[in-house]
């Protein structure tokens, strides 16, 4: 019995790390992995989602709708940023670093000046349950489920819908897509907006469990970039397996030696993976298939 309790505990921790990696990385996988824009303002889209959803909760909106509102707000903000700042910078990845970093600093400091140092949290819903000696938060199970739902929804969107096919066509060979009558500018905006909305979703989902401060986006950045870099360009063949590998390493090392070991282990794993597989896990899979 003791063994089963420990096993459950391990799976819970692994699921928790996996959910955090997937949800922080999905938006970045679309914007950085697919579109090639190195988006250092990723954390600020997460911030946007978290602040909008928490404000909505304070106004009495039920949590699921509040989270959807946060995601929507981040998506709209993303489309505006794409049109105003990013559009001239496709194919200039180094310039996108500077531009998005600037946006990140403006948003962080702007939020501090306008909304103050902190926003009151909405509190984690659903309470807790016990297995053996350990008690667990139910909401974190919801987060794990949401990570899987997000991956499934993205897969359906990119493979089964017209938008998904147009988006993939536009990003692979833009001029041919354009010649075939696709409004590529619109597709770029929508895809960037989708990435931002996914970041906003992560913000909205994690907002009830975290300190709400203007710098909160930074807490997601390392995990998001690490997952996308390890995964490579493809969300399903890349981000999801990368989150499994990194989540496993992080959860085992953290339970064995604490947070510091977990962080170090995860980063060492990244160094090893990009040394052996320079184009990430999905690059390896796709190359073998081709």
């Amino acid at each position: 019995m003791e063994f089963l309790y420990s096993l459950f505990s391990f799976f819970y921790q692994f699921g928790d790390a996996f959910a955090f990696l997937v949800l922080s990385a999905c938006g970045l996988a679309v914007i950085f992995g697919m579109m090639g824009v190195i988006n250092l303002a990723h954390g600020e889209f997460i911030l946007c989602g978290a602040y909008v959803s928490t404000s909505a909760t304070h106004m009495g909106v039920p949590l699921p709708i509040a989270i959807a509102l946060g995601s929507l707000a981040a998506g709209i903000a993303g489309m505006i940023v794409e049109v105003v700042v990013i559009r001239p910078l496709y194919k200039r990845p180094l310039d996108t670093i500077v531009a998005t970093w600037g946006i990140s600093m403006i948003v962080t400091q702007g939020t501090l000046i306008v909304l103050g140092t902190t926003m009151a949290g909405s509190g984690t819903p659903f309470g807790s349950f016990s297995v053996g000696d350990y008690s667990y938060s139910i909401y974190r199970i919801v987060l794990m489920v949401m990570a899987l739902v997000t991956l499934a929804a993205l897969w359906l969107m990119f493979t089964k819908t017209r938008f998904g096919i147009l988006a993939r066509a536009t990003i692979q060979v833009p001029h041919v897509a354009e010649a075939l009558g696709v409004n590529t500018n619109l597709i770029y905006s929508l895809t960037f907006g989708l990435g931002a909305a996914l970041a906003g979703l992560a913000g909205g989902l994690y907002a009830p469990t975290m300190t709400l401060v203007p710098t909160m986006g930074a807490a997601f950045m390392v995990e998001a970039f690490v997952t996308v870099v390890v995964g490579g360009a493809d969300i399903f063949l890349g981000t999801a397996p990368a989150a499994v590998v990194l989540g496993f390493i992080k959860a085992s090392l953290t339970s064995w030696q604490g947070q510091l070991a977990g962080q170090i282990g995860m980063l060492i794993a990244v160094i090893i993976v990009i040394r052996i597989l320079p184009r990430g896990i999905s690059g390896k899979i796709l190359k073998e298939r081709a």
């Binding site: 790390a17 339970s255 604490g258 947070q259």
Partner: peptide, 16 residues
């Protein structure tokens, strides 16, 4: 347990 600055996820620490 010593926690690096900037860490925001404590699920495993809570279990430890």
């Amino acid at each position: 347990e010593f926690i690096p600055l900037g860490v925001s996820q404590f699920s495993q620490t809570i279990q430890n």
